[in-house]
Nucleic acid binder design. Structure first.
Length: 477
RNA sequence: CGGGCUGUAGCGCAGGGGCUAGCGCGCUCGGUUCGGGACCGAGAGGUCGGCGGUUCAAAUCCGCCCAGCCCGACCA
């Protein structure tokens, strides 16, 4: 046992960090709060990017790239936006050895620079909608950072759309929220709640913020993606108007939406176990690893048998064959489990003689002795099964840890214990929300669709007044 | 940014004013092994996180700084 992963029970934070470092997903950089995404982690991100990017293209978006540096004055044009971001900005004051006339901000998000350009590009209703996405890095000076979950610099995509009317912009906001939900559930096998954020939690500069929220294994919520209806806030701040068919000048309506490398952290915390990373097959950089088991006398023949099997399946699956001669099979099993490869195929002399291969699934540890001729189909089935069963397991966990609450004492008790998602009738008052935060550390994660109707006739669990919403509270990352 | 803990070989740690800084794992070479983290032998690898101070002498004592973890404040 050379590598040890702290158990989740012993220390959930240490467990998470152990996995990130030992599975070689990322490493600390010399700069505080920053991280190096290593090839194994970046491969995961690339697969996420590919799936998301396809979905963005299918919904009519185009990619573009806007600059890293933003004039400081731009950030200040939208009042709430300035206030929201001021504490976490990094500012460039010098360039080429000289002090700059106007400092440049390293983008914390790109609304301002994008809307300064949209002003140039939009004149007529014929220019709308404008549906642009960019893949980029952003920088936010975070006080407390954690690998993938909150880093000073991170990678993300940000979609920025401009529309002729409010309904269309709202529709876009919700469409992309739906894209995120689909991606989270179908690719990451991570069930999410969707809904609107309370005012306290919404994006600085947005009219409405929507989010997907997932429940991690420690029963804390993680905001995994956000989609904002920006109203005309940025259009007004940057004076972006268009002429309608009737010849009137109107401000443009906007949405923006993003997901980041935080998704990698979400993925780890949703499925992994005390042996290491567990990855859903759709996003696993390596889906199948073939481990030949041989002695000196059997080496050539086993490698030949295992190698030909590997050659047969490699066109269908992302796979590797581990021919290393220095590590024992047991070491390799543990290592590939730690790295989260969904399916392992063990092939030794016995299998070779009997025309078999041993197929092992990472999520359950189940070993299946298969005829060699049937193994590829078995793996195909397992890949689908594992994807589904990871989702089912996570979904069951989410449901087990979601509780409807009606009284304040019950709420306190819930968050003093294991916690999870608490579905709570809420009067809609910021004071009630703040009280819960102060006394339990739990915040409103989302106001799910249809929550107002569900709250009718109920009393706020915090104030006792008439409830306006059924709010989902949780402690969060 | 406040409180606590930590920083010595790639990783995990021991040492705690004095002569050549150790141990386990890993790494390199040779050999034997190989169906759940193998073994033998020989090696390589260190400005003791950084800077400054005290001292005849600092990994060790003092100060400042940097980084990491935990708690808090803050955080689309």
């Amino acid at each position: 046992m050379s590598k040890k992963i702290t158990s989740r029970q012993e220390n959930y934070s240490d467990w998470y960090i152990d996995i990130v470092l030992q599975a070689e997903l990322a490493d600390y950089s010399p700069v505080k709060g920053c991280m190096v995404i290593r090839p194994r982690g970046y491969a995961l991100w690339e697969l996420m990017q590919r799936a998301l990017d396809d979905m963005f293209k299918e919904t009519g978006h185009q990619n573009a790239y806007f600059p890293l540096l933003i004039p400081e004055s731009f950030i200040q044009k939208e009042a709430e936006h300035v206030e929201g971001f001021a504490p976490e900005l990094a500012v460039v004051t010098h360039g080429g050895g000289e002090k700059l006339e106007e400092p440049l901000v390293i983008r914390p998000t790109s609304e301002t620079i994008i809307w300064s350009m949209y002003k140039k590009w939009i004149q007529s209703y014929r220019d709308l909608p404008l549906l642009i996405n960019q893949w980029a890095n952003v920088l936010r000076w975070e006080k407390r950072t954690r690998l993938f979950l909150r880093t000073t610099e991170f990678l993300w995509q940000e979609g920025h759309t401009a529309h002729a009317d409010a309904d269309e912009a709202r529709e876009e906001t919700l469409r992309m929220l739906g894209v995120y939900k689909t991606f989270a559930e179908e690719f990451m096998a991570m069930p999410v709640l969707t809904g609107k954020k309370s005012d306290a939690e919404k994006f600085a500069g947005a009219v409405e913020t929507y989010a997907i929220e997932a429940l991690m294994q420690d029963r804390k919520a993680l905001q995994a993606g956000t989609s904002h209806f920006l109203g005309q806030n940025f259009a007004k701040a940057f004076d972006v108007t268009y002429q309608t068919a009737a010849g009137e000048l109107e401000y443009v309506w906007a949405s923006s939406w993003g997901v980041s490398t935080r998704l990698v952290g979400a993925l780890i915390m949703t499925h992994s176990d005390d042996r290491g990373l567990v990855l859903p097959p759709k996003l696993a950089p390596t889906q199948v690893v073939v481990v030949p088991i041989f002695k000196n006398e059997t080496k050539a023949s086993v490698l030949d048998y295992a190698g030909s099997f590997y050659d047969e399946i490699r066109s269908e699956f992302r796979c590797l064959i581990d021919k290393d001669e220095n590590n024992s099979p047991g070491w390799k099993f543990a290592e590939w489990e730690m790295r989260g490869v969904p399916v392992r195929v063990e092939i030794g002399p016995r299998d070779m003689e009997n025309g078999k291969v041993m197929v092992v699934r990472r999520d359950t540890g189940e070993k299946i002795l298969s005829d060699r001729g049937e193994a590829q189909e078995l793996i195909r089935t397992l890949i689908t099964d594992i994807q589904q069963s990871l989702f089912d397991r996570a979904k069951a966990f989410q449901e087990e840890n979601t509780k409807e609450i009606s009284s304040y004492s019950e709420l306190l008790e819930f968050f003093a214990g294991d916690g999870g998602f608490a579905v709570v009738p809420w009067d809609g008052e910021p004071e009630s929300e703040a009280k819960v935060k102060a006394e339990t550390k739990a915040t409103i994660r989302v106001l799910p669709e249809g929550n107002e109707e569900a709250a009718q006739g109920r009393l706020c669990a915090i104030s006792g007044k008439a409830a306006q919403h059924m709010a989902v509270f949780a402690k969060s990352y």
